[in-house]
Design a protein around this nucleic acid. Structure first.
Lengths: 115, 115
DNA sequence: CCAACCCTACCACGGTCGTGTCAATGTTCC
DNA sequence: GGAACATTGACACGACCGTGGTAGGGTTGG
């Protein structure tokens, strides 16, 4: 089985060994461990590390923000609350009376936060 | 027209005036301005401030994280990249051969990042 | 056995977040 | 016109983020 040590994985992915450990602690890319506790990076992890790196630099996003995105996708209640809060913001549709729109969104919030 | 000054809005929403200005600069809740430049908070803004406060404390989320969620929803390319990266993570379905699953996700990433 | 690697656990340091306070200046209202 | 508010800008400060380093101790392989 082809598996790279943390230093080798760093070389081929553009991260530093230090950052690979940090990325793992951030819950984004974990490596399996050898019997003695060494991190072992397989092709899947290497690919994930490369695309992660590309994503972060292309959009100027941080690891913490990726962590929050991950949280959004595994906590449906959080996602629903955030989504509905944000949905109530933008240019409200002109064909809905402002009062009605507001009441609609308020109700939605009450229901969601009551859960 | 019923509109509160920043101090009054603070009282009834649980924020401090300082934080109301901060929230505005974070792009989350803006107040319209009086002719002389004073912020004027209407019922809609007050409601949004209250629900925002509830959301943040209930889920232990920060303003910056809400800002990122907002970014996710208004930058489809970012959202697609983040979503697809995260989608490739969890326990991969056992009925798909690991190699195939990996290649599938890699292809998806290449297509998305090439856009 | 020894060099070269790995582990965790710390210290450091500039940057941002969340918050308060203070200063200098303009507005409202009695 | 003076008290009580508003504005922006700055300084401060503890907490966390991203990153590097170092230290003390285990593992691997020639």
């Amino acid at each position: 089985m082809e598996a790279l040590t943390i230093h080798e994985a760093a070389q081929t992915t553009g991260w530093s060994p230090r950052m690979l450990r940090y990325v793992e602690r951030a819950g984004l890319v974990s490596a399996r461990r050898s019997p003695s506790g060494y991190r072992l990076y397989g092709p899947a992890e290497l690919q994930r590390l490369r695309t992660l790196r590309e994503l972060l630099s292309r959009f100027d996003v941080g690891l913490a923000e990726m962590g929050f995105a991950r949280r959004l996708r595994r906590e449906p209640a959080l996602r629903a609350a955030v989504d509905s809060w944000l949905a109530a913001q933008p240019r409200r549709p002109a064909h809905v009376a402002p009062g009605d729109w507001l009441r609609f969104e308020q109700d939605k919030h009450e229901k969601l936060l009551a859960a």
